[in-house]
Design a protein around this nucleic acid. Structure first.
Lengths: 224, 224
DNA sequence: CGCTAGTCTTACAAAACGATAACAATAATA
DNA sequence: TATTATTGTTATCGTTTTGTAAGACTAGCG
């Protein structure tokens, strides 16, 4: 766990550094807003604890600029400004949480832990579930209603796509992009054929259908 | 966006429901802890707003039990308990955020939005609403007064156009451009036919009309 | 009140689309 | 290199969706 604490009050910075250190990880402290911004751009942090009033670049600008650069590292704002307007501003400019000073270290720790948990979860999903269907990304196993299904590579990738977006219509173009990494139309009906093959393995010998066609648009994985 | 509000104070529940409704989505309210738990188990919500003091099952138990069942829907705790210990308990038992009553609706909205963003289910403009009509762009589902309507592709695109411009008159030329991507007049009455078809599905079997003809100009989607 | 231009409705034909099977090409494996 | 497994292509068929045109209808106007 790598953490950046942006805080110009030396005393607070030290306390925070110590408190977050207890969560097992590296904690770096930066007191200058502009320098902190540069560090955030060039390093990968797991979380940023941010004060609002800083020299050279204030916290709002810091958060907003990061988000504009598509850097979505969770940001916890730690500020003496306790007015509603300040909180709203902070939260809408890219802050994920807002804690007012004085604060309890235990609460800061828990909130940081929560933010970390949330951002790790997305990339860690190893098993997808939809109704009686289970797909395991690690061992490439697909099971429906207890029975193991033997899917080919392409079929597996397609099913992963469907199960990552249940109840959403997936266009043929999207499928071409995600499964074949094509950005063009191959002028054949590969997609239809693949769907047909997947269906055969997925729905044949089972009472309920899973993949529905939406004419002229694409396919959906949905119930009933 | 689908949201569950677990709150036994009727007044607060109503306010929250209204406030979250502004974020475009379905909001369900449940006042009983145990029943809320069962609903959370059997339904897929994008976020849960949770009071702590509830009949039959308290909020802590609710959150903890859900997490044990590996249901990781973001939970925002909304509670009158403002002591540090309560906050810590709530946050460590599965809550992702903790807001104390009394609260500002604007802050609740922003915090909910943030949680949704983190869990990828971003609150994009995916759902259009007009009166008792709902159109979902992701699954191409159109519902009027709770009843699902089965629209064709062209009809769907046309309705999307109307719902994106409520109370505005849409000229036939605009419709040709937006639905067919024609820049010319096909010299037939396609548009009229399509509107007719859409109306049949949209207004037949319902008490109120939605699409009105403006002779010589075009059509409008409006109320009364 | 009757005319007219614009709109609605219906039925039918044409086109588009998707499912599937059979075959071809390519990749993997021995 | 031969053999097999996997993936891609093409063709056909049935179905659904869409476009067209002809006639009925209606609002607005003289």
């Amino acid at each position: 766990m790598r953490c950046l604490v942006v805080e110009d009050d030396n005393e607070i910075a030290t306390i925070v550094k110590q408190g977050l250190g207890e969560l097992q990880g590296d904690v770096e402290v930066e007191s200058n807003g502009r320098r902190a911004y540069e560090r955030a751009l060039t390093n990968q942090y797991d979380i940023i604890v941010l004060d609002l009033m800083l020299p050279e670049m204030d916290g709002y600008t810091f958060a907003k600029s990061l988000r504009e650069k598509e850097i979505n590292t969770p940001i916890l704002i730690l500020s003496a400004l306790r007015e509603l307007d300040d909180r709203l501003k902070g939260l809408s400019m890219g802050g994920d949480d807002y804690l007012t000073k004085p604060f309890a270290m235990a609460e800061l720790q828990i909130r940081v832990k929560n933010l970390l948990k949330r951002s790790q979860k997305a990339s860690e999903i190893t098993q997808l579930v939809f109704q009686d269907l289970k797909l395991n990304r690690l061992n490439r196993e697909v099971v429906r209603a207890g029975r193991k299904l033997d899917l080919q590579e392409r079929e597996f990738v397609l099913l992963d796509l469907f199960m990552s977006n249940p109840n959403k219509i997936i266009g043929k173009q999207t499928i071409l992009k995600e499964v074949w990494n094509y950005d063009f139309d191959p002028q054949t009906n590969v997609v239809d054929v693949l769907v047909c093959r997947l269906r055969n393995k997925l729905e044949k010998d089972f009472p309920t259908r899973l993949i529905y066609t939406v004419r002229g648009v694409g396919y959906v994985l949905k119930s009933t």
